[in-house]
Computed example of a mutant assay.
Amino acid sequence: MTASFAPALPAAHAAAAAQHYPEGALYVVATPIGNLADITLRALHVLQLCDTLACEDTRHTLGLLRSYGVDKAPGRLLAVHQHNEAEAAQQVLERLARGERVAYVSDAGTPGVSDPGARLAAAVRAAGHRVVPLPGASAVTALLSVAGAVGGGAAAPQFVFAGFLPTKAAERQTAVAALAQEPRCVVLLEAPHRIEDLATALAVLGSRRVTLGRELTKQFEEITTHPAADLRTWLTGNPQRSRGEFAVLLHPAAADAGDGPDEGLRVLRVLLPELPLKTAVRLAAEISGAPRNALYDTALRWRQAEQAQNDPDDEGAEAAD
Rank of each mutant, 00 (worst) to 15 (best):
G69H: 07
L41N: 03
V113M: 04
H20Y: 10
A89H: 10
L41H: 13
L268S: 11
D57M: 11
L272F: 03
E306G: 13
G136D: 00
P10E: 07
G264F: 08
D197T: 15
R95M: 05
L26V: 02
S67K: 14
E306V: 12
L77V: 04
L283W: 14
G289M: 11
L300T: 07
G289I: 05
A137E: 00
V46S: 04
P157Q: 00
F159Q: 00
L202Y: 05
P166I: 13
D259R: 15
L295A: 10
P74A: 09
P133V: 06
L268K: 12
W302F: 14
S242I: 15
A137W: 03
R98H: 02
I33N: 03
A37D: 05
L36N: 03
L77H: 00
L272E: 03
T200Y: 11
E23L: 14
G117Y: 09
N238V: 08
L271G: 08
P133L: 06
P135K: 11
V131I: 02
A169D: 05
P22N: 04
E215S: 04
P111H: 04
F164D: 05
L65W: 01
A299S: 06
L36R: 00
D230V: 12
E315G: 07
G316V: 12
A103F: 01
G151T: 09
A285Q: 04
L65F: 07
M1Y: 00
A86L: 14
V70G: 02
A305L: 07
D262E: 15
A97E: 11
L120A: 04
P312T: 10
G112K: 05
T167G: 12
P32V: 09
A201R: 02
E263P: 03
G260K: 13
C185D: 01
P166D: 06
A308K: 01
A177F: 07
D262H: 15
Q158F: 15
R243G: 10
I287P: 01
V105G: 00
Q181N: 14
G109P: 02
L249P: 05
V281I: 05
H60Y: 11
R269Y: 04
A89S: 14
T167Y: 12
A18C: 02
E245L: 11
T279K: 07
R208K: 10
A147S: 04
